[in-house]
Simulated assay, not measured.
Amino acid sequence: MIRTTPPRPVDVETLFPEVAAYRKEAIRLHPRAGRPGVLDSSVGGPLLWPAGEPWPHCDDDHPETGRAPDGPGPRPMVPVLQLFASDVPGLPFPEGTDVLQLLWCPFDHKPHYTPRPELRWRGTVASAGDMAVAPWVEDAVDEYVPEPCLVHPERIVEYPCHDLPEDLHDGLAERFDRLRRDTGWSYQYHLSVAPGIKTGGHPGWTQDPDWPDCAECGERMEHLLTVDSAEFDGESWRSWLPAEDTPRTGTVRDLPYEERGRIQRAPGLMLGDMGGVYLFLCRRCPGMPYDYRADCS
């Protein structure tokens, strides 16, 4: 089933033409509970992973004050996201690949006290034969292991909020406030950056931006994808809730807790306190090195 984000409730570029130069396209993935297979784009589903290829493990030291394994020894990483190029046009797949896979260690890692992610790029044609089954991690943090979900990609337009140049943000602050007073619409929550799991666009920071620089060339990396704890929160649902998920009567906040959760947090993730993990890469350098950041509210 498709998911359709409603049009912005006001014309952003007419009200704030200064932000038009910073517009970017993103693809909201809208994960919803399902039974994905290895040839499906998914969150928390099985991966196109040849049985003869070693499964990645994490043998890092985990912080004693965080959510750590019950004992010593490496732990298998868990599947988080698989995306096929046909479902996410515009994603920068390296030559010869058409599948992006994200796995992470389902325990806390310094410095962000969130899972540590790893990216894999592979080609569908090169993957043949029997597929591996992800090992079970008995002591994994439940909120770090996503439930299997199919995705419903949707291309949208975003405008930055926290990533606006400081002088521009300060210059627009009074107009942002006036819009909120006059209409109830917030630039930050309703008009700028989409919440939820997505590719491209702008990171949905809940704290100050923390862009990584490439360790090889020293230039700032670009945002590849965001894994967020929720599709929306208590404020942003007013403009980012898909039309297909809008109740016939009342609002999504009036739904029973479990029913609302199937829309708001279908994968069951909780990263910190409604936070997110952000993946970045550098297309200038061979091998497209990547890095990550995380934050929470």
Rank of each mutant, 00 (worst) to 15 (best):
E53H: 08
L119S: 13
P286G: 04
D70T: 09
Q207D: 13
P256D: 06
P54C: 07
A33V: 12
D70K: 09
T114G: 12
A243C: 14
G34W: 01
G66T: 04
P9A: 08
I2L: 15
Y257W: 11
W240P: 03
E25S: 14
L102N: 01
D61I: 12
W104H: 06
L83S: 01
P111Q: 11
R67A: 08
P146K: 00
D167E: 13
R220N: 08
W49F: 10
D139I: 04
V80L: 07
E216S: 10
P56D: 04
P247Y: 00
H162N: 11
E174W: 10
C296I: 06
D273I: 10
D213E: 13
A26I: 06
V78W: 00
G272M: 08
D163P: 15
S239T: 15
D291C: 07
S186I: 02
C105A: 15
T199D: 05
R155P: 00
L164T: 06
D170H: 14
I263F: 04
R28T: 12
R220C: 07
D139A: 05
G196F: 05
W121V: 06
A140H: 00
M270N: 10
C217G: 05
W49L: 02
L100A: 07
D177K: 11
R262M: 07
L241E: 01
R293N: 12
D40E: 12
P247A: 01
M270K: 13
T206D: 15
L81W: 01
E64N: 11
Y159Q: 08
Y113N: 14
P54L: 07
S42Y: 02
E244Y: 09
D163N: 15
L29Q: 01
G34Y: 02
W104T: 03
V12K: 03
S192D: 07
A85R: 09
